[in-house]
Design a protein around this nucleic acid. Structure first.
Length: 191
DNA sequence: TAGCTGATTGACT
DNA sequence: GTCAATCAGCTAA
């Protein structure tokens, strides 16, 4: 069963941390691909200068809507990035999924990524993981609690340490420590 | 209508 | 280490 709606109806920071170890599942027809979430970043409301809620109007309807939906956007004209909306209705916030550890459909992912057997880079990086799972702009607004894209609870005990640090790849509010990752996991994109 | 920016990646020096 | 690729949405005119 996917994570329930109430999981997402919490502050983005808490959702980002608890999402580590969970499994993102993508279903394209009979093709299923999945990966364990090993790296996330939290983005807050208008007060967070790096958040799209602060400077990208098109995202408002999702940011301020109910939690548990996907926010997919295109950046640098080439790459799609996947976010999970956090917070209850009226509370802005989201979690950027930065890296996955592939667990299901490895061959399909490799074909989509056009890479060889380099598992480590298959879904490591926000642009890479969307391509590996076949996520596109059409999936913007998808319900993560049911449907083609879901996030399942951890498939094994939480035996890892959580790393915390500043977000990467952004130019505003760089000093906030809103990035979380599974300590020591080699699939984390920015080590 | 033209020009700019960005939560990136991969190819190249 | 540098740099091009390439698109949505804003801003200025």
């Amino acid at each position: 069963m996917p994570l329930p709606r109430r999981f997402y109806r919490r502050p983005a920071r808490a959702v980002a941390r608890d999402l580590l170890g969970c499994v993102l599942v993508s279903r394209r027809g009979r093709t299923v691909t999945a990966g364990r979430i090993v790296e996330t970043e939290a983005y807050l409301g208008p007060d967070d200068a790096a958040s799209h809620a602060a400077f990208r109007p098109g995202s408002h309807v999702l940011f301020y809507g109910d939690g548990g939906f996907a926010y997919v956007y295109l950046n640098y004209g080439i790459h799609c990035c996947l976010n999970a909306i956090a917070g209850a209705m009226g509370r802005p916030g989201c979690v950027l999924i930065r890296a996955l550890e592939p667990v299901l459909g490895l061959a399909v992912m490799a074909r989509r990524r056009r890479v060889g057997s380099d598992l480590q880079r298959l879904a490591s990086g926000p642009g890479n993981l969307t391509r590996a799972l076949g996520i596109t702009l059409r999936d913007n607004g998808a319900d993560l609690t049911r449907g083609c894209f879901t996030i399942e609870p951890p498939d094994r005990p939480r035996d890892f340490r959580v790393g915390v640090g500043p977000r990467v790849g952004i130019t505003r509010a760089v000093d906030l420590r809103l990035r979380f990752w599974i300590s020591g996991n080699r699939f984390v994109s920015h080590s």
